[in-house]
C-alpha cells in the first residue's frame, strides 16, 4: 500500500522508482558479466580475438552487439572491465556506443514500433547510421592516447597496450589461472560484480533522479512545438533523448508516437539517446575523464545533428 497521497514530490518518487525498476536489472546483468570477465577472462584475450589491424578491429567492435546484445545500462560496467582486460580504448568506445543500437533486440523493437510506418526504413536507417557514426568515433578516439580519455585508476594497469604493441603480460595470467580454485574465482567474480553494481549504480541513480525531475516537474507538451522543421526538430529530439534517458530496447515505441516530428528527427532521437543521455553521462564518468565525456556528448550531438538535418532534406520516407 502506498504511504503518501499524490503530490509533486510523490510524482518524482513514482517516476524515479519506475525508471530504476526498469534499468537496474540490466545494470545488474552487466555487472555480473563484468565480475565474471574479471575473474575468468585472461588479460590479453581481447587482443587475440580482434583483428590486429586497428581500423579493422574498430569496425568489428561496432558489430559485436549482434553477438553480445546489451543495452546502454549494462554495457558500461562490461566496458569498464574489458578496458581493464586490455580491450583497446577505441574498440571499447565503438562497442559501447554501437551495441545498444546495433543488436537484434533493438532491430526487432524498432521494426515493431514503426509497423505500418515504413518500419524497414526506420530500422535499417537507425542501425546503419549508428554503426557508421560509432566506427567513425572509434577512428577519432584512436588518434588520442588512453591517458587523455580514461580515468586514472584504469590507466594504472599494465594491460593497456594497443594491439600490435603486444605487451601482453601473458605471464600475469598464469597465476590467476593456475593458483586458485573455482570457489575463489566465484568470490572474486561476485565481489567485483557487487563493487561495480554499487559504483555504476551510484551514477545511474544520479542520472535517474535528474530524468525523473524533468519528467515530472516540467511540461512535456512544450516539445511538440518544435516539430515543424528538422532544423529545430532534430536538435530538440536529440535533447529530449538526452534528458529522457530511455532504454534502447523501448525508445522506438516512444518515438513512433511523436507524430509532430519528422522521421529524421525521430531517427536522431533513436540514435543519439542510446549513445548519450543524462544517466549515461554519469555512468560514463565511472570510466572516462569528464573532459572526454563532455567532448563525446557535444561531438556526437553535432555530428548526428548535422547528419539528420541533411537526411531530412534529401530523404522523406513514403
Amino acid at each position: 500500500m502506498p504511504f503518501t497521497d499524490p503530490s509533486p514530490l510523490g510524482d518524482f518518487f513514482f517516476a524515479f522508482l519506475s525508471i530504476l525498476f526498469e534499468g537496474a536489472p540490466y545494470i545488474l546483468l552487466g555487472t555480473i558479466i563484468s565480475g565474471f570477465i574479471d575473474a575468468y577472462l585472461p588479460s590479453n584475450v581481447m587482443d587475440r580475438i580482434l583483428p590486429r589491424n586497428r581500423y579493422g578491429a574498430i569496425a568489428l567492435s561496432g558489430l559485436l552487439g549482434i553477438v553480445f546484445p546489451v543495452c546502454e545500462c549494462a554495457i558500461v560496467p562490461v566496458i569498464r572491465r574489458l578496458v581493464k582486460k586490455g580491450l583497446p580504448v577505441s574498440c571499447a568506445i565503438t562497442y559501447m556506443l554501437a551495441a545498444p543500437i546495433v543488436n537484434p533486440i533493438v532491430a526487432l523493437s524498432t521494426f515493431s514500433a514503426f509497423a505500418g510506418n515504413d518500419p524497414m526504413f526506420m530500422m535499417l536507417s537507425r542501425i546503419g547510421i549508428a554503426y557508421l557514426v560509432t566506427v567513425f568515433v572509434g577512428f577519432v578516439v584512436h588518434q588520442f592516447s588512453a591517458g587523455s580519455i580514461l580515468r586514472e585508476f584504469l590507466l594504472s594497469k599494465p594491460d593497456h597496450h594497443e594491439v600490435g604493441k603486444e605487451q601482453q603480460h601473458a605471464e600475469q595470467d598464469h597465476e590467476v589461472e593456475g593458483s586458485t580454485g573455482g570457489p575463489d574465482r566465484l568470490v572474486l567474480a561476485l565481489r567485483t560484480a557487487a563493487r561495480d553494481f554499487i559504483d555504476v549504480g551510484m551514477y545511474f541513480t544520479i542520472g535517474v533522479m535528474i530524468t525523473a525531475i524533468y519528467r515530472t516537474q516540467f511540461d512535456q507538451g512544450l516539445i511538440d512545438r518544435f516539430g515543424s522543421s528538422d532544423g529545430m526538430g532534430v536538435p530538440v529530439m536529440m535533447g529530449l533523448a538526452f534528458i529522457l534517458s530511455l532504454c534502447s530496447t523501448s525508445d522506438a515505441f516512444i518515438a513512433a508516437n511523436m507524430t509532430s516530428f519528422s522521421s529524421a528527427a525521430k531517427l536522431a532521437f533513436l540514435t543519439y539517446g542510446p549513445m548519450m543521455d543524462v544517466k549515461l553521462v554519469f555512468m560514463y564518468g565511472a570510466i572516462f575523464k569528464p573532459k572526454f565525456v563532455i567532448a563525446l556528448a557535444v561531438g556526437l550531438f553535432v555530428l548526428l545533428g548535422f547528419i539528420f538535418i541533411q537526411w531530412g532534406i534529401v530523404y522523406t520516407p513514403a
Binding site: P2, F13, L17, D219
Partner: peptide, 27 residues
C-alpha cells in the same frame, strides 16, 4: 556511495504514492 544509492531509493520506496498527482496529469 551507499548514501547516494540508498537514500533516494529507500525514500522513494517508503514515500511513493504509487500514482501520479492531478497536477502531473494536467501538465
Amino acid at each position: 556511495t551507499a548514501a547516494v544509492v540508498l537514500v533516494p531509493l529507500l525514500s522513494a520506496a517508503i514515500f511513493t504514492p504509487d500514482a501520479y498527482s492531478m497536477n502531473w496529469v494536467e501538465k
